[in-house]
């Protein structure tokens, strides 16, 4: 089986925006399912365990960067804290990206949106709208 020719021939293809949304839909869905649900459960577990556990959770995923220490063994935990904040922001981006491409799926599922121009337009629009929504979400969190 391994030596049989593959179709599509993986070396002969040209990037298009519809391929990007398709791949983004999978990457963001799987990313949220594997990483996001872990953090969701950590959050709920901390809430159910009381204020101290919640403070520990917040200290890890939403550390105050000004208070991080980079001396000795603390370097490692500080790096993890920086990464976790990036992961959390990344998950919000993944959420809005998957939401937009998921809504696009709904339109395609009812048989609409296959005209070349419309398909291309929404393939480009959906990840861009998602970035705008992510920015609006964080602006609302900070401002409201």
């Amino acid at each position: 089986m391994s030596n049989r020719p593959l179709s599509p021939h993986l070396s002969i293809w040209k990037w298009g925006p519809h391929m990007l949304v398709s791949i983004l839909h999978r990457v963001t869905g799987d990313g949220m399912a594997i990483v996001g649900l872990g953090i969701l459960l950590w959050w709920l577990g901390a809430l159910a365990s009381g204020p101290e556990a919640y403070a520990t959770f917040q200290g890890w995923v939403w550390a105050d960067f000004g208070a991080l220490s980079f001396s000795g063994a603390e370097i490692l935990s500080s790096i993890v804290k920086i990464l976790l904040k990036i992961v959390l922001i990344g998950l919000s981006w993944a959420f809005f990206t998957h939401l937009c491409s998921g809504l696009r799926h709904f339109v395609l599922d009812i048989g609409a949106g296959y005209e070349l121009d419309a398909n291309r337009m929404w393939s480009i629009a959906s990840p861009i709208i998602a970035i705008l929504l992510t920015a609006a979400f964080w602006a609302a969190i900070i401002l409201l």
């Binding site: 809430l47 159910a48 365990s49 204020p51």
Partner: peptide
């Protein structure tokens, strides 16, 4: 996850 929410709602948490 559901157990955590139930615990919060029914007041078992600290």
């Amino acid at each position: 996850g559901i157990f955590c929410v139930v615990r919060l709602a029914l007041g078992g948490a600290a």
